[in-house]
Design a protein around this nucleic acid. Structure first.
Lengths: 165, 165
DNA sequence: TTAACGATGTAATGTTGTAACGTGCATCGA
DNA sequence: TCGATGCACGTTACAACATTACATCGTTAA
């Protein structure tokens, strides 16, 4: 199991940072690479769950995923198994948990450590994410100033998206 | 029912802003005043629920509150009823929902509109809150820049508090 | 071969949240 | 005074989210 990112490693990674937004097969490949890199196995089950997760526009609940993976495999996959793997994905930065939606979303650039800012539309449910390192570092700094350590920011913004405005 | 705060009203309130941190009876009074001000009633049930909520150091789940209020009244109070009133409290800014904990916390300065930043200790569960208006306004601005409207930031930081460090 | 381990399966249960509808009570105008 | 209205709260049922404990299976290493 992987430790959550902590500030110093974070800063180091940021300096050399480039974005590769992935999609489809490319994303799955990147995810596989990242998982293997982390010393974990890329199994069929994990592959299927990642694939399903990646098809969602909106944050997907573990049960949503369980249903679709069950269909795909023609055999019931219990939520339990899905949670296990989602936890692994979150720990290895392949996916993110959206706290305000009790749901998960694939990370479109696994391999880069980021504090993401999620924008979730209260109307249509779609989530977009923005990266604003100055902002997230400020949040980290504020928390650390208050004596917090091993900081993990949760920055989500609920509202109406441009389409639903 | 009260609309969520929106940016323009927010800015207006900020300009004239002073903090009055309340505790105990003073807090209950302030809460009552704020609720009445909002055109809502301060009933026994609401008073009890607020009182129980305010005794918690850490974010309290609706079920925690239901249990304690049930004891206090010597009669079962269903979670359902607690949710209704918590929703009202959140809408009127008497309490906040901590999304990453599925729990609620009393607002120690009802009457001021704020985007709070919560720091929640993963070890002991206590939540402290900090107000950093520059930061929260930046988050609002980032979301609005991405086309979002009626923005409601959720900014929480998980980590280890100074005591548990 | 067998022990150990990691991944997944199965079943049960616990926690959090909502929906639908009923009851009691205060207020208010006819 | 009486019924209509509206609000707070109660009750029940259920939906959605999450975890626990233990079993099974295949691979690897002694």
């Amino acid at each position: 199991m992987i430790d959550p990112p902590h500030a110093s490693a974070y800063i180091v990674r940021m300096a050399a940072h480039h974005h590769h937004e992935h999609a489809g097969a490319s994303l799955a490949q990147a995810a596989e690479a990242a998982l293997v890199e982390a010393g974990e196995q890329w199994t069929d089950m994990r592959s299927d769950i990642f694939a399903v997760l990646a098809t969602f526009e909106k944050p997907a609940s573990a049960y949503d995923i369980a249903d679709l993976v069950s269909q795909k495999r023609g055999k019931r996959v219990a939520p339990n198994s899905v949670y296990r793997i989602l936890d692994l994905f979150v720990a290895t930065n392949l996916a993110r948990r959206v706290e305000s939606a009790n749901a998960y979303i694939a990370n479109s650039h696994p391999g880069c450590l980021h504090d993401c800012i999620f924008l979730i539309c209260d109307n249509c449910g779609t989530a977009t994410h923005i990266d604003d390192d100055a902002l997230t570092m400020s949040v980290r700094a504020a928390a650390e100033h208050a004596g917090f350590a091993q900081v993990r920011p949760v920055i989500e913004v609920r509202g109406k998206c441009a389409d639903c405005g």
